[in-house]
């Protein structure tokens, strides 16, 4: 089983994305967070717990309270203390080259996925981690 954390405030998008992933593979579990801060707080609380830590994080950029960029700043500090390696993908509707370049310059970011999530991308992600 692969565990996926989805950090995105758009409830409809979260629902549709989960539905797409489920139809592609049954080998996954999900958890979603409405903003970056909720996700960071939870990750801190389970930093030692390899059972609960995710294999994949899908991170939206535009969110209230703590957006994706701020999350990345915090997560860069937190990551060395996380007891299980994972893949982090930016998952955004932005098609701005500036956003894409900026995201790819961050070491922790594996890739920049432009919404919506496609089947082949899901399989690639799940098989890769």
């Amino acid at each position: 089983m692969k565990s996926i954390f989805l950090v995105d405030d758009d409830k409809i998008l979260v629902y549709l994305t989960m539905r797409t992933i489920k139809s592609a593979t049954t080998e996954t579990t999900f958890k979603d967070f409405g903003n970056g801060l909720d996700a960071i707080d939870y990750l801190k609380s389970i930093a030692d717990n390899t059972e609960l830590l995710p294999d994949i994080i899908l991170l939206d950029l535009s969110m209230p309270i703590m957006d994706g960029w701020e999350f990345l700043e915090e997560y860069t500090k937190l990551e060395p203390h996380i007891q299980k390696k994972n893949k982090l993908y930016i998952f955004s509707s932005s098609i701005s080259p500036h956003d894409i370049e900026r995201a790819k310059s961050i070491d922790l970011v594996s890739d920049f996925i432009i919404k919506p999530l496609k089947m082949d991308k899901i399989m690639e992600m799940v098989n890769f981690c």
């Binding site: 758009d10 409809i12 998008l13 549709l16 539905r19 797409t20 950029l61 535009s62 955004s92 509707s93 932005s94 098609i95 701005s96 500036h98 956003d99 919404k115 919506p116």
Partner: peptide, 25 residues
């Protein structure tokens, strides 16, 4: 101009993505 790019690429594109996925389902 950058602000407008941001609206178009995010604020407008986000609901469009949702709509097209919903219609597909």
């Amino acid at each position: 101009l950058t602000d407008f790019c941001n609206i178009v690429s995010h604020n407008l594109r986000a609901p469009l993505v949702n709509m097209s996925m919903l219609v597909q389902y």
